[in-house]
Write a protein that binds this DNA or RNA. Structure first.
Lengths: 172, 172
DNA sequence: GGGAAATACTTAACATGTTAAGTGAATGCG
DNA sequence: CGCATTCACTTAACATGTTAAGTATTTCCC
């Protein structure tokens, strides 16, 4: 009952190419996604060996550099949304990698900090991580990498202004 | 060495800065993540208005350009993992946006194609999407955008070769 | 002072990312 | 032919992305 797959002529044939668009594989979002995945593929195995996900690692790194932070601040630093962060902090706390205590001046806020165990784990993971980063830098070229990051920053910046105008613009 | 001045003493304060690492916010993965998020933030509202997620849209776009494809091929094109694709195809089929039929030469393979309704939906979404892309291009600069994409492609390429060394199990 | 509004999270619900295991259909090879 | 292996895909299980709603606390303002 099935028709030959190579036969383009079937009654209700779902036509393609009816909607003209740029070449899909060359869209900016895809380029960014693929590049990032190529990079993360280098790091994930190392993190996984230590039972850490990419996001958990981001949080630990962020905490290691800022001593202690409120959840909202941490979300901004680690570039995570509140709900994701909430869940991850719950898990990291259960694993004793972080510590929390509610701020005395404002019971709504909770201060998060990395624990001794967390620091120990970081010390275990960081060397390989740095080595991998160095390898990437060498392969791609340090100067080129800096250029790329500069452009990425500019892209982010030039689009961020759009959001502001979105929020402010028409309230019809 | 790194002594913190004048901070409210908190008993067993977990020390930070014990693990030296690059500045977190300037890591390549973060740069790529933020840039991509900045870009996608521009597109998501439009997609959402039509009940489409980013990934569903990727699949429709991929299908529109290649007429019909096996699931594995589609996964590669839309840059999705098999399990994600499996779920999404199930949902898109339930919404009659795509069609499937098992290849008669190989019952394991199923050919996926976009439906008439799918094409109609694309025609509805594509104009805004293209307009947004044009806006981004104008803001950032067409030449610069091309440069950026070129660099992203090179990055992907120079890291892809690393994976090959992972697959050293020579399969001839 | 006291209630409305804002703030700082947390939960909930659904969709996807990610890895591992499962299922049914071809293939390779004795 | 028979059967282990491979292949194409699907399910399962857990973690995160994303938006909306909920909760507790604080601030604003009369």
């Amino acid at each position: 009952m099935t028709k030959r797959p190579a036969d383009p002529a079937n009654g209700n044939a779902p036509a393609a190419r009816h909607v003209p668009m740029r070449d899909f594989s060359r869209s900016l979002p895809m380029s960014l996604l693929r590049a990032r995945e190529a990079v993360m593929r280098q790091f994930r195995p190392n993190l996984r060996e230590h039972g850490l996900t990419e996001q958990q690692w981001r949080i630990l790194r962020a905490l290691a550099s800022i001593e202690a932070a409120e959840v909202t601040e941490l979300a901004r630093t680690a570039f995570l949304l509140g709900p994701s962060l909430s869940r991850i902090l719950r898990d990291l706390e259960a694993r004793n990698l972080i510590e929390r205590k509610t701020a005395k001046t404002d019971q709504r806020r909770s201060m998060v900090s990395i624990s001794k165990e967390g620091v120990k784990l970081m010390a275990l993971v960081a060397p390989s991580s740095e080595a991998i980063y160095a390898e990437i830098t060498q392969r791609f070229g340090a100067r080129k990498l800096a250029e790329l990051q500069e452009m990425l920053g500019q892209l982010e910046l030039c689009l961020a202004s759009t959001d502001a105008s979105d929020d402010v613009a028409d309230e019809t």
